[in-house]
Structure formats: C-alpha cells, structure tokens
C-alpha cells in the first residue's frame, strides 16, 4: 500500500503548494510577477529576445511567450486571458468586436519591420525582377499564368511552381492584402507549409519555383535561394535592412506589432516589460533577422504607450 501513500502525499503536497503560492509583487526593488505573452510565431523571435534580456535585469519576473498564431493569440487577448499579444498583422474588426464585448481595450504598438521576400531557385537565371502587377497576375485566383512564358514571353516555357505559407499565418494574410487586395481571392494551387524551412527546401530544389516568406528566412538561407527585386512603381528594389527600414521596399515591407492590454499595463511588471520592449526592441529585432524601426517612429510609439492611447493607429 506504499504506492497509495505516495500518491496521496503528493496530491496533498501539491494542493498545499498551490494554496501557498501567494501574489506578493509589491517589493519595489525586486520586481516580480508574471507577464503572459502569446500570439504570432513571426513575432516570437523578437519577443523571445526581449524576454531573455529583460530576464537578466528582472530575474524574478516570469515572462512566458506562446505561439498560438496571431489569430489564436487574439482569441485569448480579447477575453483578457493574456497581457500582450504578438501580432504580425492588424487586429481584425471581428476581433475588435469580441474585445469590446469583453470590455478589453488594446494599445497597438509596432515594434519592428519585416520584409516579405519573394524568392527563387539559385539556378534560376531568367528572372531579373518582378513587378507588383506580375505578382498579382501570377497569384490571383483563376490566374491564367501556368508557364513562365505566360508572364513574359522571353522567359522559358516551363511550369511555374508556387510555394507559400499556410493560410492561417499572418504572413499569408499580409501578402494577400498587399498583392491581391482585400476583396479578391488568391489561387489555392500552391504548396503550403506552416514551416518556412520547408518552403526554403522546396524552392531550393526546384529551378522553376517561386515562393515567399519572411525576410529572416531569406537572410539565413542566402546560400540556398535568391531573392527577387520587386518593382512597386519606382523601379525594382531588393529587400535589405536599409530598404525595409526606410520604406523603399514597398509594398511588401510590413510592421509587426505587440498589442498590450491597458488593464495589464497597470501592473508594474507588465509596464516595465513593455517599456523595455520599446526601448530595446529595434536593436534586438536586427539581431534575430528583422529590421528595427527608424528612431523617430520608435519615439512616437513610446509616446503612444506612455499616454496609453488605445485603439488602432492606422
């Protein structure tokens, strides 16, 4: 019967521990408590870097970061389950409505830029650049572009193979909105994967392929794939730290956000974390393959947070 003794002791012990867990986060010098972050896996590397650095200064504060996706994170954020949501797109009207129903407000804070990169195989020698119109013609629903020669007549008569992130990702949403438009549909006959590394492998093994994903995945795989300069009306531009930062890589550079619940921001540990995020986010974003924002934008973002301005910015 020894086993049952162990079981009951452990259960009782765990209950005792549970009831003992008090919430004394009032000590001024030693900040403690929990900051709950969830949301986009695209923003995750930046938030993780910030949490890591923050943990060195405030070791007693427990920062947890999940990756439920932008939409999954908003589901939790809008019912007040988490303090901060990582988002790779704006909050949707549906989500705003849900938040209102639950009396949750939000402060929208852009923290870095990401440049969606259009990539091709290393051995692809015919594509010098693509215009936004050409991208639209290739990717829109019911597209007649089956062969590369349909795009430009001097390109080879080979089948276009398309790769892209799954339809649940914020990256996909942003690409669709920027290239296809809000109302129209994107074609569905492309190879989808939630894991961008799979897309890298796919494009690098297929000479006539075309794919898109976040800049970090291109930057880390420059030896395997090539990036296509994009002409958004002012001549072809290659995505790089500089062109994404100064906004010349358009329309495919996008801001990534954190959404802060102003109720949570009243807690000192959350407040400190957000301030730390805004002050150091740009530098840390560069370290993990994203592009920090220009200083004057960062200043505005900090101001916005200090004033606790809720609602959407743009």
């Amino acid at each position: 019967m020894n086993k049952f003794k162990i079981i009951t002791t452990t259960l009782v012990l765990s209950l005792v521990l549970f009831s003992c867990k008090s919430s004394d986060n009032s000590t001024a010098d030693m900040l403690s408590g929990t900051v709950k972050v969830d949301g986009s896996s695209t923003v995750f590397p930046v938030t993780e870097a910030v949490a890591e650095e923050f943990g060195k200064i405030h070791p007693k504060v427990r920062v947890t970061v999940g990756i439920s996706g932008t939409g999954g994170g908003f589901k939790k954020f809008c019912i007040g389950e988490i303090d901060i949501n990582d988002a790779s797109r704006h909050i949707k009207p549906k989500e705003v409505k849900k938040a209102k129903e639950n009396n949750v407000k939000y402060i929208e804070l852009p923290v870095a830029y990401d440049g969606l990169s259009i990539v091709i195989n290393k051995n692809n020698d015919f594509i010098d650049y693509l215009t936004v119109d050409e991208l639209n013609a290739i990717w829109k629903a019911g597209s007649t572009m089956k062969m590369w020669s349909d795009v430009r007549s001097d390109w080879p008569n080979r089948r276009i193979k398309l790769y892209g992130p799954g339809t649940d990702s914020g990256t996909f949403d942003y690409f669709k909105e920027a290239i296809i438009g809000k109302k129209n549909n994107i074609r569905s006959d492309f190879t989808k994967s939630e894991d961008d590394n799979v897309l890298v492998t796919g494009v690098s093994g297929d000479k006539y392929s075309l794919g898109f994903f976040g800049y970090a995945y291109y930057a880390e795989n420059k030896d395997k794939i090539n990036v296509v300069p994009i002409d958004g009306g002012n001549g072809p531009v290659v995505p790089s730290g500089k062109t994404i930062n100064d906004g010349s890589y358009t329309p495919l550079s996008r801001p990534i956000f954190i959404y802060v619940n102003p109720e949570s921001a009243k807690r000192p540990e959350v407040d400190e974390f957000v301030k730390f995020y805004l002050e150091n986010g740009d530098e840390l974003a560069n370290e993990v393959g994203y592009v920090g924002m220009p200083n004057k934008v960062t200043k505005k973002v900090i101001e916005r947070y200090t004033k606790r301005l809720t609602g959407s910015w743009f």
Binding site: C20, S41, G55, T64, G66, D195
Partner: peptide, 27 residues
C-alpha cells in the same frame, strides 16, 4: 508555452515540454 525561462515550482505554474521546444527550434 514556448518560451519559459524558469523551472515550474508548483503544479499551477506555466510550463513547456521537450517536443514543443524542439518544434520551435526546428522551425
């Protein structure tokens, strides 16, 4: 969660597990 920089101390603490961490690193 995926990023947890502490060891759970009570049963009510947040946690992460090996496969979640591996999945995150692999992607």
């Amino acid at each position: 969660l995926t990023y947890v920089a502490f060891v759970p101390e009570t049963v009510m603490d947040p946690f992460t597990t090996l496969p979640i961490q591996v999945f995150n690193w692999a992607s």
